[in-house]
């Protein structure tokens, strides 16, 4: 895996004429590396990895809030219980739909917004604040707010649809097994577009104009400039933002929890909302086992994703 992440980085620098030359690897260099990484490591190890390792034991124990006086080690039993649960495959499938659909739409809209925002126009700062603010609204608030707005009988969305004549009857968004998933994804898209828009915009701003001018002189059209010059230049940012968003969306139960609680009939149940259900039942063993399964899936995904993206462009 180590090779693949490195190469992604190098891909990102295609605008640089000669590839970065390998530095001489001296003792001094490795000390520098260590020194620069140490502060980050200290925080992450103390406040993230140490609690993870200690708390992670729960996954291999019978760990029920109802009786913490005995928490025997039970090996992988929590994992097998989960996988044997008929809901397991449905939850994983829902998670997949939730991640892919939210991600693709967020990315496309975010990318287009970033492109649209490159050129200066009056009140661009105000405009950006207007479209970026959803990111600063907490997930649970978005959940209950959209739940209210999507309410079939009294919600404002149906009211608008009916007033404008788009729909004659109220649409039971959250009560319909198919529409409920659409509704939660709509809310998530509304929330998540800002992240891509800002990150891609920031990356686009670091593409030197000389490159575009050179392309223009070459007579390349807009589309060609975009696909041949712009995108390759900000490739690392694109690859990494997508990766981070996959991880975050997978681990983001707030909106679904607030909007549907996983219902109706488990139709919007994803891995992390299911995990919340286990913690509410007091079964921290099952909940953390599910947490590890999610982490496992994401680690494998990360490895494959980075490897594939590296291989794809090899000459």
């Amino acid at each position: 895996m180590s090779a693949s992440t490195d190469e992604v980085a190098e891909r990102g620098r295609t605008h640089e004429a000669p590839p970065p030359r390998r530095r001489q690897f001296t003792k001094r260099t490795s000390l520098t590396i260590l020194a620069y990484l140490t502060p980050a490591f200290i925080f992450v190890i103390i406040f993230t990895y140490y609690p993870l390792v200690v708390g992670g034991q729960m996954a291999f124990r019978k760990w029920s809030l109802y009786d913490l006086t005995s928490t025997p080690f039970i090996g992988l039993e929590n994992f097998t219980t989960l996988i044997a649960n008929p809901l397991f495959s449905k939850v994983m499938l829902n998670s997949l739909v939730w991640v892919v659909a939210s991600l693709v739409v967020q990315f496309l809209i975010g990318f287009m917004l970033a492109l649209g925002l490159r050129k200066k126009f009056r009140f661009r700062g105000v405009y950006q604040a207007m479209i970026f603010y959803p990111w600063a609204v907490s997930g649970f608030l978005i959940g209950i707010l959209f739940r209210w707005m999507f309410n079939s009988e009294f919600g404002v969305f149906n009211d608008m649809l009916m007033r404008t004549g788009v729909s004659a009857k109220p649409i039971p968004w959250l009560a319909n097994p198919d529409l409920a998933l659409v509704a939660v994804i709509v809310a998530n898209v509304w929330y998540g577009v800002a992240f891509f828009a800002i990150m891609i915009l920031a990356a686009l701003q670091s593409v030197p104009h000389e490159l575009h001018e050179a392309a223009a002189i070459d007579g390349a059209g807009r589309w060609r400039t975009l696909t041949r010059v712009t995108i390759p230049t900000i490739r690392t940012t694109l690859v990494l933002t997508v990766l981070l968003r996959v991880i975050w969306i997978f681990n983001f139960p707030d909106i679904i929890y607030g909007m549907t609680g996983g219902g109706p009939g488990n139709q919007t149940q994803i891995a992390t909302t299911w995990m919340i259900q286990f913690t509410q039942q007091g079964d921290y063993g099952l909940a953390s086992a599910l947490g590890f399964i999610v982490m496992g899936v994401l680690v494998v995904f990360t490895g494959v994703y980075l490897t594939l993206l590296t291989r794809e462009r090899k000459p």
Binding site: I144, W148, N151, S152, E153, L174, A175, A180, T260, G263
Partner: peptide, 10 residues
């Protein structure tokens, strides 16, 4: 109401 399938207290 049809949508009360998903109604909670609120």
């Amino acid at each position: 109401p049809e949508s009360s399938v998903s109604w909670g207290y609120s």
